[in-house]
Design a protein around this nucleic acid. Sequence first.
DNA 1: GTGGTCTAGACCACA
DNA 2: GTGGTCTAGACCACG
Lengths: 118, 118, 118, 118
Amino acid sequence: MKFNPTVPIYLQIMESIKKDVVTGSLARGERVDSVRALSEKFDVNLNTMQRACSELEREGVLFTQRGVGSFVTDDDSVIKTLKQEMCNNLVNEFIDGMRGIGLSNKEILDTVGKALQK
Amino acid sequence: MKFNPTVPIYLQIMESIKKDVVTGSLARGERVDSVRALSEKFDVNLNTMQRACSELEREGVLFTQRGVGSFVTDDDSVIKTLKQEMCNNLVNEFIDGMRGIGLSNKEILDTVGKALQK
Amino acid sequence: MKFNPTVPIYLQIMESIKKDVVTGSLARGERVDSVRALSEKFDVNLNTMQRACSELEREGVLFTQRGVGSFVTDDDSVIKTLKQEMCNNLVNEFIDGMRGIGLSNKEILDTVGKALQK
Amino acid sequence: MKFNPTVPIYLQIMESIKKDVVTGSLARGERVDSVRALSEKFDVNLNTMQRACSELEREGVLFTQRGVGSFVTDDDSVIKTLKQEMCNNLVNEFIDGMRGIGLSNKEILDTVGKALQK
DNA sequence: GTGGTCTAGACCACA
DNA sequence: GTGGTCTAGACCACG
């Protein structure tokens, strides 16, 4: 995975895992790889991976059973909320940005429409 | 102006000025305030403001006349390109993000449509 | 290192490092000292050193791994191009200068020849 | 005349006038244009032109007769020395630079030879 | 320990 | 007055 050097790696990893969770490619309640394995998979420092995981835990996306491993939350509503939040953030940032450079509602919608066709 | 503490102030200032340029609220060739004045306006340190300005100059958005002041580029094509770039970035990031959380083209378009009505 | 007071220190440091790179005394891909160490070595302020390094990074001579350190580019072609550029600049400035004060090609070549024997 | 933004304009003007003097395109003892006229010719601020002229006077290249105007020095030895100095500076800087990037005497001479043929 | 950013305050060259 | 550079010292995110 390629990281954008301007944003913290652990945030990018968190985003990546969240995406897997909301798309179901990491299923509800499923066990995730160990931090060590993940750090190798993402090719990042172990500390960085730990940071990403503990933040995800804090957000309720993952939970840990000591001595057993980490798991995706088994609370479906958490996942739904997460998806909604991510979606809202994306949309709001996008619209604010487009309006900020002077585009009208119509122009925004047209631009999205065209871009989606590619 | 309120700054997002997670992204460098000078970048946020650059964004703000770029927006003014692409929306025309800073006209082509127009003189911009002195670095000192801007640093007060944005309420940041002089050095921070200078960093923002010199990066904008490197990007071709501003140019400087020694001992005189800084001006918005008078090359219209630069401004057009800038606007196009900013727009593309927004759209691409948005679409990538939305697809990343598993939304279809139709869902993306619908979501934007609804959000624009608010 | 002694600095010429009429040209910015950070530029002189950049030149110095570039020379080390093109002569190979800083090898391709080699790690360079930390900014802190360099600032002591060159006996300049940390910020000045950072300025020099970030400009070198922008020029592709160095690259940075977050939290790890900075390294000489591992792209050999960049180094070759750099050497060629530095060489061309020197030669062109020199010849332009000499012609500017009215010397013929023959005189220029003779002068260089004599100077090299010292 | 185009100025290099990284070096003071007044220095560039001084260089330009010195070249005219050593090549004889400004003859020994010849009257030079008024500072005002020169500032228009070079398209620079009057202060800048004044700075250039007074430095040239300090260096003995020009001299001023109050109420009359400025003139190129009528001392031929000054001009010869000037030319020699400019020439030496060019050669020394050039050779130092080339050696600094690791070229041998032979390589330096070859490079100059080739460049002169263009 | 690494690089990156920010502030405060000073000095300089240029116009 | 303008922009540009430099220092000193602090804080932060990252690994």
